[in-house]
Amino acid sequence: MEQSSPSSSPSRGGRTPAASRRRQRTQEILAATRAVFDERGLGDAQVEDIARAVGINRAIVYRHFSGKEELFALTLVGYLDELHDSLAAADDRAAAPADRLERLVEAFADYGLAHPAFVDCAQTLMRRTGPELLDEVSEDAALRLGRAMASCLGILTKVLVAGADAGDFHVSNPGALANLLYATGLGTLQLARVGLLVEEGASGAPQIHTIEGATAKDYLVRSAVALATAPVTAQLKG
């Protein structure tokens, strides 16, 4: 009777040793990518540096990911999973909807301020349209990214729905508003990361001012509540 070779025999969990090694290497690359992002930022992250951190060459990275965009997308999944846990921990279902919304936005801002590479990574991927991104990442990576984003937005959407049901919020499309708050939050946190505001002076010359992270956080909280309580005609419809 022919026997399978040790390298191809399935493990007790149903995965072959080769598949297990591949999965482990994929996780090592993602961990290295996250470490490089957190240390240097997205702009200075190079695939060569990520490969060197794992102890492999650049070519092996591309055996595990379809390209740089997929590597970045799956790294973003890790950030989003952490963000989800932060949002879930901050939400108090016994509190009033406005208080719940404030706490969620505060948790989002705190996470973004603590992890600027998350903001960079999320904004970089958002520069592509959906079809463009799907052309650059595998179906599995796109599904994982979509699920991670939806799980975070889902927490916010449920609070907006609860507020609308209680009559505290005037929200015609909770899902759309949740997406708008997410995108606005990323932009505001990027502004806080840069730390500069530009205004027109009396002579027409530009004037530069600074903005602190706490100020950006406060703006996000107050603007989120204002949008949720604004008349429906001033909100997104769909």
Rank of each mutant, 00 (worst) to 15 (best):
R93C: 14
E48R: 02
Q24W: 00
I50Q: 03
T75F: 03
A59V: 12
R25S: 03
E102R: 00
D110V: 04
R22I: 07
F72I: 15
R23P: 02
L42A: 14
H115A: 13
A88P: 01
A59I: 08
S20K: 00
A88K: 03
L71F: 07
A45R: 05
V54A: 12
D99N: 01
F65S: 08
R52I: 08
E70T: 08
S66H: 11
A32P: 02
S86V: 10
R22S: 10
D44H: 11
A98T: 10
Y79K: 04
A59M: 13
H64P: 06
A35C: 11
A109Q: 04
L101I: 02
Q27T: 11
E82T: 08
L42T: 09
A53N: 12
A59Q: 14
A73C: 14
Q27A: 15
S66I: 08
D91F: 03
V36H: 01
R63G: 12
R34M: 14
R63V: 11
A94F: 04
V47H: 03
E69A: 14
R58N: 15
A88E: 10
E102F: 04
K68E: 14
A73M: 10
L42M: 15
A96R: 08
L76I: 00
L76S: 06
N57I: 07
A94D: 15
Q46R: 11
G67T: 10
L30M: 07
D49K: 08
G67R: 01
D38W: 05
L42V: 14
L113R: 04
R52H: 12
N57C: 15
A73E: 05
A95I: 06
L113T: 02
R100Q: 13
H84R: 09
D92I: 09
R40H: 13
A90N: 02
L30G: 07
A88I: 08
D110I: 06
E82H: 07
E70D: 13
G41D: 08
F65M: 11
E70A: 11
R34I: 08
A19Y: 00
E106H: 02
E70M: 10
S20R: 00
A107P: 02
I60F: 13
Y79P: 04
A73K: 04
A59N: 12
L83Q: 03
I56V: 15
V77G: 12
V47M: 09
L74N: 12
A51V: 05
I60P: 06
T26W: 03
L101T: 01
T26Q: 04
I60D: 13
